[in-house]
């Protein structure tokens, strides 16, 4: 029988000490300090503590798999579980609503040595995270096309648009939209021979998150508007990025999808 170490013997309040020991045991596997506090009985303290450890790790890994289904299919369940364990240790949840958990996955994968052979994983993680963020974003009334028609012609070039809270733009040097799209069916996806770049627009309409491929011009245009540039400045930026950019078509696309939450005419 080992001596039971009482909690709080290191000068911290007993309950805070117990909870710190449990946290360490649950996240890292260093369980000696935690199990020292536990009564055994018919089942050993280690076995009892392992139930909680498995619960915590498996449920957080499941939360990540729920947010990153395409990443999981790309790397396989076993590798994903392995990566998730590392992720959970480095980036444990800091808020109790798991719909907000997993936002560091792109950064994590970019620095995760075993994942380096699949260079598009970090961008795929950005796309999947953007989709979750879009789904839970605040509601906002989109700017109706008629609002733009009501702006006097001489003021049009200085109009500013604010993107709606559910709108996300993901640009990548890799073909991440096409790879993502290939994984939306249940059959085995084929995406061999694809090359980037892909520009992806993510937005919510009604109850659904839409994911669409857009051209570089529209991507640059929307990004510039999001940064607060005026309509004329954003159009200029878009043409510089893509000489074929069609301002009329781009505006129509954006207004029809309800991408704008605000329209600000220039101050008189």
């Amino acid at each position: 029988m080992t001596e039971k170490a009482a909690p709080g013997t290191r000068g911290t309040p007993p309950l805070a000490d117990l909870q710190a020991r449990f946290k360490r045991g649950l996240l890292t596997g260093d369980i000696v300090d935690a199990t020292a506090l536990i009564l055994g009985g018919a089942v050993e303290p280690n076995d009892r503590f392992e139930i909680y450890r498995n619960n915590t790790r498996a449920s957080l890994a499941q939360a990540l798999a729920t947010t990153y289904p395409v990443i999981q299919r790309l790397v396989g369940e076993e590798f994903f579980r392995f990566a998730a364990r590392q992720y959970i240790q480095i980036h444990p949840p800091m808020v109790p609503q798991l719909l907000a958990y997993g936002g560091e996955m792109s950064t994590f994968l970019a620095h995760f040595p075993p994942a380096q052979s699949v260079p598009y994983l970090p961008d795929m993680a950005r796309l999947e995270w953007a989709r979750t963020q879009s789904y839970f974003a605040p509601d906002a009334e989109p700017v109706a096309a008629g609002r733009l028609a009501a702006v006097p012609a001489q003021d049009l070039s200085a109009v500013q648009f604010g993107l709606g809270p559910s709108v996300r733009l993901v640009g990548s040097a890799h073909p991440v939209f096409r790879i993502w799209n290939a994984h939306q069916g249940s059959e085995a996806p084929s995406f061999k021979g694809l090359s980037g770049p892909d520009y992806t627009l993510i937005f919510r309409t009604g109850s659904h998150v839409r994911v669409e491929a857009i051209g570089l011009g529209l991507f640059a245009f929307l990004t510039a508007l999001d940064q607060g540039l005026t309509l004329a400045e954003a159009a200029q930026t878009a043409v510089e990025a893509d000489t074929g950019f069609d301002l009329q078509g781009g505006l129509t696309t954006a207004l029809a999808r309800g991408l704008f939450a605000t329209l600000t005419p220039p101050a008189p």
């Binding site: 909870q19 449990f22 996240l27 909680y52 444990p92 800091m94 109790p96």
Partner: peptide, 25 residues
């Protein structure tokens, strides 16, 4: 039960020791 220690949310309903200190908390 408890789920948060040192700011980290552990996604489980973890047991308390049934002490006067824990009861006061």
């Amino acid at each position: 039960s408890w789920s948060v220690a040192e700011g980290v949310y552990l996604n489980d309903l973890l047991p308390l020791p049934y002490t006067e200190e824990a009861l006061a908390i």
